[in-house]
Simulated assay, not measured.
Amino acid sequence: MQEVYRVFFADFIALFELSPDLLLSSLKDAPVFFVVIAFFIVWVGCWLPIAALIAFALKWQLSKGFQPEQKLPLLVSLYLLAPFVLWGASWLTDTPFSDYGFISNISTLYSLGLGLALGMLSIAVVFSGQLWLGWCCFQWSNFKLVRPILLPILLVALFVGGIEELVFRGFLFTELQKDYSVWVAALISSSIFALLHLVWEQRETTPQLPGLWFMGMVLVLARFVDGGSLGLAWGLHAGWVWAIATLDTAQLIDYTGKVSEWVTGKNKKPLAGVAGIVCLLFTVGIFWVFSGNI
């Protein structure tokens, strides 16, 4: 295998020097993992100078470690680059964005809205059950904090959810399908999706890895339910982020400690517990019942 890749890279460099047309032809036939790795290297490589400028401009002292409040500007700058790098990958591999599930039509907007509603419904069902069982309590005094944060959090959720779906369920899953079966492509793309969350925070993310992996699998299923479009997966992803971020930011939920945090979610993160898995299973159940009408 090493010899195969060595020969490929040697041929790639030679083609780059001789003919752009031959280069494009070579990229179309390139090993999938080469295309995937190249995408992530270029994406991060383009972002690192921007991240350094942000850190310098905001006078961050990186020696003190990565702080949670530093995540948003870094995340936004990284994700703003993604469509441009994906456009380059699309052009080089001659793969239209529609193959990645990015289809600009009314049906996609309908699926996006449906996904948003389903995402929020699944969170509401899970937390309603926990409230009924006495595992948590609702802080009504903080409800006044919700109104001013709803729209900003929705916009962030739509942005983050859209980029992550385009990258992981769009580009990555589509590319992996070229060399692997649907199930293997789903397993690999969901694993990469989960593991890359460790980049931002390790302590709180590690217990969420199984939940994040399962979330990735459910979002792959959402793309199939939606006929290959990313609309439903995008809406679901954004709906979950919107609901959870709103609850956390407004501090609307307090846990009573009646059950283990592995049930409600380690570090108050639903995906790090049984509650998050139930939320995802509820979503799969909705797919099974209503997929014929989507």
Results as ranks from 00 to 15, higher is better:
67 Q>L: 13
292 G>T: 10
76 V>S: 00
199 V>A: 14
283 T>K: 01
18 L>E: 15
172 L>D: 08
161 G>Q: 04
207 P>G: 10
109 L>V: 02
145 L>Q: 10
56 F>H: 15
292 G>E: 11
218 V>F: 02
171 F>M: 09
59 K>A: 11
10 A>F: 09
231 G>W: 00
17 E>A: 13
173 F>C: 07
216 G>F: 01
243 A>M: 05
80 L>M: 12
252 L>H: 05
287 F>N: 06
262 W>G: 10
7 V>Q: 14
212 L>Q: 10
235 G>H: 03
260 S>T: 12
129 G>L: 07
231 G>R: 00
47 W>N: 07
120 M>L: 11
183 W>L: 14
142 N>W: 00
32 V>P: 02
131 L>F: 11
218 V>Q: 03
193 F>C: 00
204 E>Q: 14
244 I>L: 15
139 Q>S: 08
160 V>C: 09
63 S>H: 08
112 L>Y: 05
270 P>C: 09
131 L>M: 09
253 I>E: 03
248 D>F: 15
86 L>N: 00
70 Q>H: 15
6 R>I: 13
250 A>Q: 03
212 L>W: 05
39 F>N: 02
215 M>K: 08
134 G>F: 05
203 R>C: 08
100 Y>V: 02
150 L>D: 04
114 L>T: 03
147 R>M: 11
176 L>V: 00
280 L>Y: 06
247 L>H: 09
13 I>K: 12
121 L>M: 09
209 L>G: 06
211 G>D: 07
140 W>V: 12
76 V>P: 03
262 W>A: 12
170 G>Y: 00
80 L>C: 11
125 V>I: 13
2 Q>F: 15
166 L>C: 03
251 Q>Y: 10
207 P>S: 12
143 F>P: 03
288 W>V: 13
192 I>C: 01
234 W>G: 01
62 L>K: 00
174 T>Y: 08
280 L>F: 02
237 H>P: 04
262 W>P: 07
157 A>H: 05
126 V>I: 13
92 L>T: 05
57 A>V: 12
241 V>R: 12
182 V>R: 11
248 D>A: 15
72 L>Y: 12
20 P>V: 11
201 E>P: 11
263 V>A: 14
98 S>K: 13
211 G>C: 10
260 S>D: 12
167 V>M: 07
124 A>G: 08
50 I>Y: 01
168 F>I: 02
14 A>N: 14
232 L>F: 10
166 L>R: 01
202 Q>L: 08
197 H>W: 03
157 A>E: 06
153 I>G: 00
233 A>L: 10
238 A>M: 02
146 V>G: 01
189 S>C: 04
16 F>P: 01
287 F>S: 12
49 P>M: 05
45 G>N: 00
206 T>L: 15
252 L>W: 07
169 R>D: 06
138 F>Q: 02
272 A>E: 07
63 S>T: 08
122 S>I: 06
282 F>L: 10
269 K>W: 12
126 V>S: 13
251 Q>N: 14
226 D>L: 07
7 V>H: 13
210 P>V: 08
19 S>Y: 06
230 L>S: 01
270 P>G: 09
281 L>K: 12
222 A>Q: 04
261 E>H: 14
169 R>K: 07
97 F>A: 05
258 K>D: 14
25 S>Q: 13
